Structures are given as structure tokens and as C-alpha cells.
Computed example of a mutant assay.
Amino acid sequence: MCIAVFLWQSHPLYPFLLFLNRDEDHNRPTEALRWWEDGETLGGRDLLGGGTWLGCTRQGRIAFLTNFREASSFPAAKSRGDLPLRYLQSRKSPAEFAEDIHDEIALYNGFNLVVAHVLSKSMVYITNRPLHGHKLVTQVSPGIHVLSNANLDSPWPKCVRLREGFQQLLADNRSSEFPVKTMVEQVMTNTVKDQDTELPHVYTPETEYQLSSIFVDMQRPTGRYGTRSISTISIKSHSEVCFYERHLEEGDSWKEHTQQFVIIQNDESI
């Protein structure tokens, strides 16, 4: 399902700061954070669908994805993880990419997709489930945003908790460098769950209850399901990128991966 909180173009040191939990079946084959074969794309890989849920590039492109929670799905739908990868490996601006995929979004099950280019200060939110007055494509404004399994900034209780925890850590650190690993521990591993009256009531009450925490760990008929990785991407004002991932491997062992690089300032398409 996934949940993310991010800071966009509203901090003196960090133009972009993202924390994202990827929730998935424990038996789904996954590759941890690494540089892909093209040498330009950085992220984890879903080995079943071939795409990714979160990635960035040396040119300052960022893309991340969450599923939209709904009662039914289309078994023959295209893999949603292909969308972030297509943007990362394109030369289109976020707005151009949104326009490019407009006619095919019905081929996917419900999704939320954020694509951005840090150097041009452009970020777009795309969804194929625009409920309650939301649009298919929205320019993301500067500030703090939370994305879970409804539209961007929907006030689900877990989203409210995540936003408040993130805001408190920002206040505690002010304009200094953020202790990323400390922030992961204090915010992204939260297992507080909601009362029944606060749940979205899309799935059964027991399933909704288990999914209502920021960090998820539950048993389903198909096997164990929950938070498989916790990722952060921090980009400083001088274009230094740090991509950190804590990844759950077989045997319940957590491994850490970190990649750092400086954005190349020559993306001709932007």
C-alpha cells in the first residue's frame, strides 16, 4: 500500500526531503536499492513487475508511487510500477509526462504518482482516481505533503500522525542538517493503529485495522504482508543527494543501503 511524507521547496537547506514506507507481500521478489543497468536510475526494483515504487536519477528526476485503496482490482491491468520508471528514463518534464500518459491511465488499477524535477522546481501529482473534486493532474505546491492510499493530503488518521510527527522533527532540527536515521526510527516505524470509527471501511474491519498504522506488519491468507522497506531521499540546496534504504530481507533481517551523488546540471529536456 505504502505511505510517504515529503517536504518540497520550503526549507533553506533541503529543496526536497522524502520518507517512504513500501508495504508489500513478504514473498514478492524484490531487489534492494542500487544503480540500475543504465547507470542513471537509482532505486529498488520489483522483480515481479519489473518496475519501481521509488527512484531518482543523476539529472534530478524523482518519482514515487502508491496504490489507491479500493474494493476491487482489474487482474489484467498493467503494472503500476512501470509508471515511475518510465518517467525516470524519459526526457520529459513532469507536466509533459502527465500529458503523455493521460490516455492510458485507465489501463492501470488505482494509483497515486508523484513525478518531479528538482532543478526546474517542478512537481506534479497524477492519479487515475480523482475523488471529491481532485483533478487527474495537480501541480504540487511548496510545503509538507502526505501521500497514502487515497488522494494526496487526504486526512486519514495515519496520514495526520505522520504529518504531525514529521513537522515536530523539522521544528526540533530547524535549519540544521536532519538526522535521517533518527527520523526514520521516530516517525516511520510508528505502529499506532486507529479505532474502527476512523477507518476508511474499504476492506474488512480487521484488515483496515492492521493497515491503519504507519508501519505495517500483518498476516493475510496469502502470507505475511507489511512494510518491506523504509526509504529516504534528501536533496540539499547544492544538489547533493542522499538515498537511504532500510530493506527487509529473508529471515527478518534488516539491511541498510546508502547511495550519494551530486545532480548533473545538464538535463536538456527541462
Rank of each mutant, 00 (worst) to 15 (best):
I3M: 05
I3N: 03
V5D: 03
V5H: 00
L7G: 08
P12W: 03
Y14K: 08
Y14H: 07
Y14Q: 03
L18Q: 06
F19L: 00
D23Y: 08
D23G: 04
N27L: 12
R28Y: 01
A32P: 10
W36L: 02
E40P: 09
T41L: 07
G43Q: 00
R45V: 04
D46C: 00
T57E: 00
G60H: 02
G60M: 07
A63F: 03
A63G: 08
E70R: 09
A77S: 12
G81N: 04
R86F: 06
A95W: 10
F97S: 06
D100P: 06
D100A: 12
H102Y: 14
F111K: 07
F111D: 01
A116N: 08
H117V: 11
L119N: 11
S120A: 15
M123S: 09
V124M: 07
N128D: 02
R129H: 07
L131E: 15
V137N: 01
Q139K: 15
V140S: 02
G143S: 07
S148H: 02
A150S: 11
D153G: 07
V160M: 10
E177D: 13
P179E: 04
K181I: 11
T182Q: 10
Q186R: 10
V187D: 02
T189F: 14
T191F: 09
K193P: 08
E198M: 13
E206F: 10
E208K: 01
L211Y: 06
F215V: 05
V216K: 00
R220T: 14
P221N: 07
T222F: 11
S231T: 03
I233H: 06
S239V: 11
S239N: 15
Y244A: 11
K255S: 13
H257E: 11
H257C: 10
T258I: 14
V262G: 14
V262S: 15
I263G: 01
D267L: 13
D267E: 14
